[in-house]
């Protein structure tokens, strides 16, 4: 039961993020929703790599215990880096839209339609 707690957190965070993305009108808030979604997925990856009693896979002066496989950590790191690039690009879009449209309300960013 207790071991599933991180996964419960992951699902909760994903649901919160999707609710923000779908219901908030402000572009910045939608972006925050996306960032929360990213964090939830990262937490999911990290949870997969957790082994009770495992130690960090650093061979220098390593104590005689089982090491965890560093793959999930590497994945998460990569995913965080991609997340930074994503957030930066999204925010720069928001800046230009704010300048050109004078609004970051999603209902008013719809010059392209039909």
């Amino acid at each position: 039961m207790f071991w599933n707690l991180p996964l419960v957190a992951v699902v909760t965070l994903i649901l919160i993020a999707l609710a923000i993305i779908v219901f908030k009108k402000n572009l910045i808030k939608v972006f925050l929703g996306i960032v929360i979604l990213e964090s939830a997925v990262n937490l999911f990856l990290i949870t997969l790599g957790y082994r009770e009693g495992g130690i960090a896979p650093i061979y220098t002066n390593a104590p005689p215990a089982t090491m965890v496989l560093p793959t999930p950590q590497a994945l998460t790191l990569t995913s965080i880096v991609i997340g930074v690039a994503t957030s930066a690009l999204l925010l720069s879009f928001a800046i230009i839209i704010w300048k050109k449209y004078g609004s970051i309300d999603i209902d008013r960013i719809r010059r392209l339609k039909e």
């Binding site: 690009l89 999204l90 839209i97 449209y101 719809r110 010059r111 392209l112």
Partner: peptide, 13 residues
């Protein structure tokens, strides 16, 4: 005039 950015925004989100 921001329209291309709107398109990119939709695609990217």
């Amino acid at each position: 005039g921001g329209v291309a950015v709107e398109a990119a925004l939709k695609y990217f989100v």
